[in-house]
Amino acid sequence: MAAYKDEQRGTWYVSFHYYDWTGKNCRKVKRGFKTKREATEWEHHFRMKEAADLDMTFGEFVQAYTRDMKPKLKHNTWLTKEHILRTKLLPYFENKKMCDIRAKDIIQWQNEQISYRDEKGKPYAPTYLKTLQSELSALFNHAVRFYELKSNPVVKAGPLGKGKAEEMLFWTKEEYLKFIEAVKDKPYSYQAFQILYWCGLRVGELLALTPQDIDFDNKV
């Protein structure tokens, strides 16, 4: 790799040939680097991405993964995936080389997710843990399938979370009528539970209600 000085601008640039994914010989020129080192490092990273060299870091591979997958996915689907990559995966794996990430590294990451607690002391839901692991595994599967990574360390590390949420328990009508009878002496609670039960609202939806949301004339 070589970098060249642009005497007129006082900056450095790189100019080189590479083969793209179709096998075509292409020329690449990139200007405006302040130092020779910056220029050569940029060329090195570019060549790794084009050559699908799994010596690249996880963070660098995420860029390649984004380039490959983003055009194929619906916008909202990609936003969900990108959020998990940015907030749950990159902070842990960003500077690790893809070829050096082992099952033990995945297990340590799993344990961190399991031990997480929010400001109210609540952990991640098992279904959310499953989603996080699925996204991480999908990225490594992509590396195995298209970038010659030997194996997926997420598979070796074993499962995380649950695919299905815990079964929800519902009151029968008879059970609800017994309950509501017991809170008749508490007007606010009584009215709140009546609306929640008979209208099928969530708590957040109830709290967001305003008088304008209710049609008193038609009783709806």
Rank of each mutant, 00 (worst) to 15 (best):
residue 23 G to L: 09
residue 28 K to C: 06
residue 106 I to E: 04
residue 58 F to L: 05
residue 52 A to H: 14
residue 180 I to T: 13
residue 13 Y to V: 11
residue 25 N to E: 13
residue 131 T to N: 13
residue 163 G to C: 03
residue 85 L to K: 00
residue 121 G to S: 03
residue 207 L to H: 08
residue 149 L to P: 05
residue 79 L to V: 11
residue 43 E to F: 02
residue 63 Q to A: 14
residue 149 L to C: 08
residue 208 A to D: 08
residue 87 T to R: 04
residue 70 K to P: 05
residue 41 E to P: 04
residue 81 K to G: 04
residue 193 F to R: 02
residue 13 Y to R: 09
residue 125 A to M: 10
residue 111 N to S: 08
residue 118 D to F: 03
residue 129 L to R: 00
residue 12 W to E: 04
residue 32 G to A: 06
residue 218 N to I: 07
residue 123 P to W: 10
residue 14 V to N: 00
residue 218 N to F: 13
residue 128 Y to I: 06
residue 100 D to C: 08
residue 81 K to F: 05
residue 74 K to R: 15
residue 165 A to W: 02
residue 46 F to D: 08
residue 38 E to T: 11
residue 196 L to Y: 01
residue 7 E to G: 02
residue 186 K to F: 12
residue 195 I to Q: 07
residue 216 F to R: 02
residue 134 S to L: 14
residue 80 T to G: 14
residue 102 R to I: 06
residue 99 C to K: 15
residue 151 S to L: 09
residue 11 T to L: 05
residue 206 L to A: 03
residue 213 D to K: 00
residue 127 T to C: 09
residue 80 T to Y: 07
residue 85 L to T: 10
residue 75 H to A: 12
residue 14 V to C: 09
residue 216 F to E: 04
residue 184 K to W: 05
residue 1 M to T: 11
residue 111 N to H: 12
residue 72 K to Q: 13
residue 155 V to Q: 14
residue 194 Q to E: 12
residue 45 H to N: 15
residue 190 Y to W: 11
residue 90 L to Y: 00
residue 6 D to C: 05
residue 61 F to I: 05
residue 82 E to D: 15
residue 47 R to G: 07
residue 181 E to T: 10
residue 34 K to G: 14
residue 179 F to P: 10
residue 47 R to Y: 08
residue 16 F to H: 03
residue 219 K to D: 10
residue 113 Q to N: 15
residue 141 N to H: 12
residue 89 L to F: 05
residue 204 G to V: 06
residue 15 S to V: 06
residue 65 Y to A: 07
residue 76 N to Q: 14
residue 46 F to R: 07
residue 52 A to P: 00
residue 109 W to E: 07
residue 103 A to Q: 09
residue 68 D to C: 05
residue 147 Y to V: 02
residue 14 V to I: 14
residue 109 W to Y: 09
residue 107 I to F: 04
residue 9 R to Y: 06
residue 49 K to A: 15
residue 73 L to W: 11
residue 130 K to C: 14
residue 6 D to A: 02
residue 7 E to D: 14
residue 130 K to Y: 15
residue 64 A to R: 10
residue 180 I to M: 03
residue 5 K to S: 09
residue 187 P to W: 10
residue 102 R to M: 14
residue 36 K to R: 13
residue 120 K to E: 13
residue 80 T to P: 00
residue 11 T to K: 11
residue 7 E to W: 07
residue 88 K to T: 09
residue 177 L to S: 06
residue 58 F to Y: 07
residue 1 M to P: 01
residue 15 S to W: 01
residue 52 A to E: 12
residue 164 K to M: 11
residue 31 R to G: 07
